[in-house]
Write a protein that binds this DNA or RNA. Sequence first.
DNA 1: CGGAACGTTGACATATATCAAAGGGAGTGG
DNA 2: CCACTCCCTTTGATATATGTCAACGTTCCG
Lengths: 225, 225
Amino acid sequence: MIRYLKKSKLFSGFDDESLEGMLTAVSMKSVTKGEIIFYEKDPAPAFFIVGTGKVKIFKISPEGKEQILMIASEGDSFAEAALFGGGKYPATSQAMTDGKLLVIHRDRFISIIERDPAIALNLIARLSHLLHKLNKLVEELSLSDINTRLAHYFINIVEEKNLSENDPILITLSEKKTVLASQLGTIPETLSRSFKKLSKEKVIAVNGADVTVVDLDKLYKFAGE
Amino acid sequence: MIRYLKKSKLFSGFDDESLEGMLTAVSMKSVTKGEIIFYEKDPAPAFFIVGTGKVKIFKISPEGKEQILMIASEGDSFAEAALFGGGKYPATSQAMTDGKLLVIHRDRFISIIERDPAIALNLIARLSHLLHKLNKLVEELSLSDINTRLAHYFINIVEEKNLSENDPILITLSEKKTVLASQLGTIPETLSRSFKKLSKEKVIAVNGADVTVVDLDKLYKFAGE
DNA sequence: CGGAACGTTGACATATATCAAAGGGAGTGG
DNA sequence: CCACTCCCTTTGATATATGTCAACGTTCCG
């Protein structure tokens, strides 16, 4: 388990001694593809770190439309915030693949951070980061149309790659387009049209899950920057 | 300043000694109605607590549409998350009235919480609460229509009042309808129509800023619960 | 009193969701 | 290897919610 803790964004950087102190609060859970880890509004006695596999956290409307809040991959933690707020999970979580999760139990974890401010600071940083991302999601949902959101999505990926001048910019989508639609707050049909629009405008070229950014300047213009 | 710290949600419950230790990190700032406290993307050397007055935090689209993220009243803190994330403010903040703010300076505050885990825990709780609220906002923006959002808005107010059976349910809007529109992620015209719709359906009765909930069951039905 | 901000209403434009259909691609079983 | 199914994706026709623009009445406040 220590190995997974070290790989996690929340606890990397701590020495073995601190991490062993953590172990009293941690257990392990295997999940299979499609398994629901928790439902929205379930009581929240623990939060999670992904050891292996991939998990989606999402909300669902009465009509069945789904809004993905995040996709957690190896090393990501999720549902940390549930420990302190109302004590209920604010969204539903489902395994997208088979995998292993670290389960961090609430009460024991709290007594640990009461003693170790460094862990508390890490948690604070992590929560801040989440706030930042949600902030951005709100902004996009309420102020941008879909083409803009899709352009932003590509820009984020491109900027993370920090590749050198004049490299061809090839992106392979890490999710099915259906899933991407739900992340962007829309439905597959609309997303498909948005892809078509950006293609027709010669901003990107699409071939299945492979997207090439043809005109980066135009991409930024679409994103409104 | 201690007085204001005590009134704040973030630091209430601490004894005078802890609070005096805080003072090295705090200063005071007066603002006048309409004054911009910070712009989105400004570097963030501090966060704030409202001593007196009212402040709105919002995003704005290239076309000028405004999405209010929160309205901070006396005792509320805002922009806490900016201290840790990218070090930039994620939104713009403007005084809605004249008022006084406590300014909590980043570096000194961080060294304080490194020493005082209790303050760190409070901050964590606060950030969790913010996450919870943003979560809800995302849900509503992406999964609900305006009538539903307005119904939710009233339900939240009614539930906070926890009044006894058979009381008449009278709500006086605390914000101008223009502002409410921006909080709900829409524009005044659309909000006006939503008010009209709920009135016509005999769910509420509206008289200027006074709203009476006529049929609570129907209100819940509109909110989809 | 008069002007500015707010609120409402109507006609209209537009983005996005919905519904229905059809075309691939990957995997499965015969 | 073929036929079959399942799921993803795309496309078209249509409906609907919401934004835009313009006008007007109202309230607030100097």
